[in-house]
Design a protein around this nucleic acid. Structure first.
Length: 628
DNA sequence: TTAGGGTTAG
């Protein structure tokens, strides 16, 4: 058994703990009388720390020191005291430490009891080491300990977090056979597991079934279900559960309201969210900083700045203090809106209020500088965060890399990528995709493809964005054939292609003169269940115009007006340029009139053609006036 | 002395 447990011990934390619990390297020697005196004097200390108050704010370091003190004292403290300490460490989510200390106890001859085994089973389950948890279960049963409802619920939790939801369901059924009646905690665990495995309807049904089996759903039950439903956008059902819990005399708390309010915001029902906010107030449930942050963030993202600012004043007036999340949400929204000055003011304000910016705050500000091509300031912000012990993450590096790529310095981007890797961070899909795009923009197909290959060999999954950038880059750099090979593989794969992918390929085909292939692909879209958008039509129309297939272009334009997407400025300008190149002044003028009546104007390339034609006398000045 | 869930920002 010792062996089977020990192979779980491999992490750095464990090595750290080993060092600590084994002392400074000297083997344990029989205590001298002075040591005995010293250790007895100590024993009062750990008892005090093990009391309820002492454990509540214990740090990991102190807990490990405490353990060292306990194993030094003679006689050994009781197993109950060890259990209390292990449990406190487990509550810090330091499961590997608990396992390590449990092993140490055994090697010192301190026997485990039912509670110790339950704690260890829970720890192995939380670390997804189900087989080790089962090994412990076998061992304790051999020693004559019957697993309790708590032991079995821990195991159930392990099944739920792994890939074995069917085993979890079976375990609950077997518990009844074993004469161990599942309780509310058991059902709550299983309900959570069902949500983790996308079995929402089974989870909801279980709320009723547990009541039949004599377990009343509680706040935890509803918290689990409401959150699970909101995550998948089932807000109506979540709201009906809110009503149901009120009927069942269970007071919803602010967190449950926050969950639903945030989902309503995310799914664009901001006004419903405001109504629910009022409803909770009327029920006497006070909104907190999370409620406000959620609403403010969404309002900003939808551009409802005045509503957001009203809410901000409202919360401050009510002495609900904005926190780092509130500020970060505001800063990010301002940055995305291009209002870097306001974002910086907010940053100063949070410093003034002694709210420490975190990695998300810094990332937004760095992004702001990059968006305005102020790379030096972005890098200064990067240094600042490092100096404040705020560790840059993959988003930070990705933002900087995107910034330098935008400034056409993809080689610097690669340097940053290497530096990031050296610091132990692994590039994600966005980082690789940014670099691929950077190389294509620099016309460097070879390196772009090299990065793509590296991405795949590094086990990072390309997403549809990656493929769109790859296909677009290949097409724009004269490599249609390579793009086609990838495109055909993609169509056979599980990756869901969006209309953008097809637009890129149609454009690639048209620009390479393969107008018929483009048209065949265009016509196949409806069969694939993809709706061509305005860009698809414009691309195809432009392809026809380029090949001087005016009738086809006009036919498509008419089809668009009848039952396609609304023509935009690009549609009109493409058609107008074709007419101008033909020297068909009357038709051009008519199209320009129609375009203007739709609220669009001539774009840069149309204007430039007109100016050229003015110069060589093919057009008169009135034409230019018509355009804008 | 052992078990369960849920909220905000990139």
């Amino acid at each position: 058994m010792m062996r089977s447990i020990s192979y779980a011990f491999a992490s750095t934390t464990k090595r750290f703990v080993r060092r600590k619990i084994q002392g400074k390297g000297s083997p344990r020697i029989a205590p001298s009388s002075f040591n005995l005196f010293w250790e007895r004097a100590f024993s009062g200390g750990y008892r005090e720390k093990l009391s309820r108050n002492g454990l509540s704010d214990l740090k990991l370091d102190e807990a490990v020191d405490l353990f060292s003190d306990m194993v030094k004292s003679r006689p050994f403290p009781s197993i109950v005291e060890f259990n209390k300490l292990l449990s406190a460490i487990a509550k810090m989510n330091k499961f590997d430490v608990v396992i390590s200390l449990g092993e140490r106890m055994q090697s010192l001859g301190i026997s485990h009891n039912l509670y110790t085994y339950s704690i260890l089973i829970n720890c192995f389950c939380r670390r997804s080491q189900l087989s080790l948890a089962l090994a412990i279960l076998g061992k304790m049963m051999k020693l004559g300990y019957e697993p309790s409802i708590v032991t079995l619920s821990s195991l159930l939790n392990g099944y739920c977090h792994g890939k074995r939801i069917s085993d979890a369901v079976a375990l609950v059924d077997r518990m009844v056979e074993m004469g161990c009646q599942p309780n509310t905690v058991t059902f709550n665990t299983l309900i959570h597991g069902l949500f983790l495995h996308s079995k929402a309807s089974e989870a909801v049904a279980l709320v009723d079934r547990m009541a039949v089996k004599g377990c009343q759903p509680n706040l935890v039950t509803y918290g689990t279900v409401v959150n699970g439903l909101c995550k998948r956008g089932d807000i109506d059902l979540a709201l009906s559960l809110l009503k149901k819990m009120e009927k069942g005399k269970i007071e919803p708390d602010v967190v449950i309201y926050n969950t639903i309010i945030d989902s309503l915001c995310k799914y664009r029902h901001v006004d419903d969210a405001r109504n629910l906010f009022n409803e909770m107030e009327n029920k006497g449930i006070r909104p907190n900083v999370v409620t406000y942050s959620s609403l403010i963030s969404c309002l900003c993202n939808y551009g409802r700045w005045s509503d957001a600012s009203r809410l901000l004043s409202d919360m401050i007036e009510r002495k609900i203090n904005p926190n780092v999340v509130t500020f970060s949400a505001l800063i990010d929204a301002f940055v995305k809106e291009g209002k870097l000055v306001e974002a910086e003011k907010l940053y100063e304000e949070m410093i003034k209020r002694s709210i420490d910016p975190n990695v998300i705050t810094y990332n937004s500000l760095i992004n702001g500088f990059c968006m305005h091509d102020r790379l030096n300031e972005a890098k200064q912000m990067f240094s600042l965060m490092v100096s404040k012990d705020c560790l840059p993450n993959v988003v930070t590096w990705g933002t900087l890399i995107k910034g330098v790529c935008k400034a056409k310095k993809v080689e610097d981007g690669m340097d940053l990528f290497r530096e990031m890797s050296q610091r132990g961070l692994v590039g994600d899909t966005i980082v690789y995709t940014t670099l691929i795009q950077g190389f294509f923009q620099a016309g460097d197909c070879d390196n772009a493809q090299m990065v793509f290959k590296k991405m795949v060999s590094d086990g990072v999954h390309p997403n549809i964005m990656t493929y769109n950038i790859l296909l677009d880059g290949l097409c724009n750099n004269g490599k249609l054939e390579t793009a086609l090979v990838i495109f055909h593989d993609l169509q056979k794969s599980k990756m869901e292609l969006d209309v953008v992918t097809y637009n890129i390929m149609i454009e690639g085909m048209c620009k390479a003169g393969k107008i018929e292939d483009g048209w065949i692909l265009f016509c196949s879209l409806s069969l694939k269940g993809v709706k061509p958008d305005v860009v698809t039509y414009n691309t195809m129309i432009s392809g026809f115009c380029r090949k001087d297939l005016k009738e086809e272009a006009d036919a498509l334009f008419n089809q668009m007006k009848e039952n396609g997407p609304r023509p935009n400025s690009g549609t009109y300008n493409t058609l107008i340029r074709a007419r101008l190149r033909d020297g068909d002044k009357a038709a051009s003028a008519e199209l320009i009139k129609e375009m203007r009546s739709c609220g669009f104007a001539g774009d840069a390339s149309t204007i430039s053609i007109v100016i050229n034609m003015l110069h060589d006398g093919r057009l008169d000045k009135s034409f230019l006036d018509m355009l804008s």
